[in-house]
Design a binder for these strands. Structure first.
Lengths: 198, 198
DNA sequence: AGGATTATAGACCGACCGGTCTATAGACTG
DNA sequence: CAGTCTATAGACCGGTCGGTCTATAATCCT
């Protein structure tokens, strides 16, 4: 059938394989052959679905990661009325994920972001838009709690930065303390801000 | 002469080349030939100074980066009595560096950290120790300002996380707003903490 | 049914990867 | 000045890189 978008699952498996690779080792860290083996697909199929090759596949994976992140944030803030608690749950989820993978899988966005150069316009563009959307989401939630727009924007950037930075520290340390501590410090900050304007 | 340590500058050029590569493209993003060309050295000299090859060179570069970071933090906190101002200066320096390189060069530690796997024990070890030292440095400074040890530790983790995460966001966005905003939010937090205990 | 389009399959390519090896040059030591 | 050790130099290696190309299978449209 495939009425809406012709997406014959092989394409999805390729994207998933790239996403996992980005989590584990980054863009330059995986070869095409490894990717294709993970997806159970031959070479030709990659260039059929992604004429732009590895780079185009990476952009698709980045897009998927961003969508996933926005959805899970949505769910979290919907579930917990208190944004501080939602944030704590977010960071807690990151801890669990990191531990479950034995500190192998981090955030796919951060890794490829740092590997990218100004010439990689497609990837940097996708990442910039994605980060921007995530920040907007966070800022909007804070504003709805009565935090002034300007302050909310700053805190949103800080939250995203802290999230990525904490994951990074925890990953190389092989322990999740960094995430726990970052979460605690962040929550204290948010509560003073929400409290201040109430 | 070379009385203290036999370090015949070629070694240093190799380390510098690797450090720059880590800033720009990451460990897997550069080839040995490129590295050697940048250092103006032939192949053999690499394996003479670093029998462990590329990986060992990377560890040396990481170590150098950490030392440099600790030194510059030292200078900053020595120069500015108020830690909030010192922090602002730190973030400001990051902005300038990023802009000067046209968003090509970020933090070398973050990049290789995210590319590493749990198997890369040497690199992860060096990074974990380095981050730990930086956090200790920050926490110590806060404690000296009267912040309770437990809180100081948490904030130190947050500061380092925010630094890395802000640089990351700014780099892909091609603008330094993220660093500016992170800096502002962070300083507000620190000032309330220092104020609270005074 | 028949032709066009989409998807799968993998052989094949030149370039470059990280790494080893031998040869030579210099410096220090007796 | 011979002998040793350190440093520089680059040819060379097998393997893998990302990418192209042609062949075939499945699907869709009329």
């Amino acid at each position: 059938m495939n009425t809406a978008a012709s997406t014959p699952q092989t394409r999805d498996r390729l994207i998933a394989a790239m996403l996992d690779a980005l989590r584990c080792r980054g863009y330059h860290g995986v070869g095409l052959s490894e990717l294709l083996a993970a997806a159970g697909a031959p070479k030709g199929v990659l260039y059929h679905h992604f004429p732009g090759g590895k780079a185009e596949l990476a952009v698709a994976a980045v897009q998927l990661a961003i969508d996933g992140m926005l959805v899970s944030l949505d769910r979290l803030f919907e579930k917990h009325a208190d944004p501080a608690i939602a944030l704590a749950a977010w960071m807690d989820g990151a801890q669990k994920q990191l531990r479950a993978s034995e500190f192998e899988r981090g955030c796919p966005l951060a890794t490829i972001a740092l590997e990218s150069t100004p010439n990689d316009v497609a990837i940097r563009g996708a990442l910039a838009n994605g980060f921007s959307a995530i920040r907007a989401h966070l800022a909007g939630t804070l504003e709805r709690q009565g935090v002034a727009a300007a302050i909310a924007g700053q805190i949103a950037v800080l939250i995203l930065a802290a999230y990525e930075g904490a994951l990074l520290q925890a990953r190389v340390a092989g322990r999740t303390d960094a995430i726990r501590d970052t979460s605690a410090a962040l929550i204290a900050l948010i509560n003073t801000q929400i409290g201040a304007t109430k």
